[in-house]
Design a protein around this nucleic acid. Structure first.
Ligand SMILES: [Mn+2]
Ligand SMILES: [Mn+2]
Ligand SMILES: [Zn+2]
Ligand SMILES: [Zn+2]
Lengths: 137, 137
DNA sequence: ATAGTTTTTGCAACATTATTGCACTTTTTA
DNA sequence: TAAAAAGTGCAATAATGTTGCAAAAACTAT
């Protein structure tokens, strides 16, 4: 119950109904959520614009991170790696199931080292694996 | 000159002005192209819808592949790994420059092996590295 | 608890991006 | 060169994302 408040207060952002509701969604969800998912689950209570702004705030404050996808859907997932405002460090692999279409943070699977050609400087590495998930197996 | 025809004919698709023009763009471009880039360079000659349909066809036929991005822009790049219709195998790392915003296929950098937890089946691995590119260095 | 201050929200308007059906044109096949 | 197949443009429509501003809610200090 208080977990919600904890997360929001730790980031020094106001506690509002919308933020609590959306954060709760993430806490309950096993995988990543698309913007459309969130909008669908909350449209009765909140305006579309609020959802956009809330997700943006959450990313900025290190509460959620987004996951690259080849189609143009932005996916969001809870940060579990003590991310801070303005600086994420979710160094794990993401998995997208071709069957059930769910996206999962594989917290246990670290992002491998990638050796770049001379002259390139690496800041961040994103790894997205697709295939069949453990549920669909 | 005939390279264009080669690529199209090898995939058994009709050779049209639009396809030649867009394919030429890819052949000339050093990095990946966003849909918007392509539209900008061709809008005088072709309808937006044609661009959408052409890119879709090219992906399906293994002429170009798309690159996952965290913002929701779809990027496309030429396949150089003998991809076939319905089955891509561009096993290289992609690099996005935080400075000049260009995206580059690092053909020489192979995608590293990722060990998944028991129960997951891997089909494809996408690796996107961001940082500063060799031009901006 | 209350008043003042700050932050967030909803609404409306607008902009951008993407999809579909259908008539017409171009390309391919025979 | 004619018939068939494939591709294109246009218009309509849908989906997605952004902005400014006034009202509402949350926070702060008394
Ligand atoms: Mn994650
Ligand atoms: Mn590539
Ligand atoms: Zn699955
Ligand atoms: Zn650069």
């Amino acid at each position: 119950m208080d977990k919600l408040l904890d997360i929001l207060k730790k980031r020094h952002i106001s506690v509002t109904e919308g933020r609590k509701k959306i954060l709760e969604l993430f806490l309950k969800s096993p995988g990543a959520l698309a913007h459309a998912d969130i909008e669908r689950s909350t449209s009765a209570n909140f305006d579309r614009v609020t959802v956009y702004r809330t997700l943006q705030t959450f990313v900025e404050k290190g509460i959620i991170h987004n996951i690259p996808t080849a189609d143009n859907a932005i996916l969001y997932a809870l940060c579990k790696d003590n991310c801070e405002a303005g600086h994420h460090h979710d160094n794990h692999v993401h998995f997208i199931c071709d069957n059930c279409d769910s996206t999962i943070c594989l917290e246990k699977v670290a992002v491998p080292e990638v050796k770049l050609p001379k002259g390139f400087t690496k800041k961040q590495t994103d790894v997205v694996v697709s295939g069949i998930c453990i549920e669909c197996k």
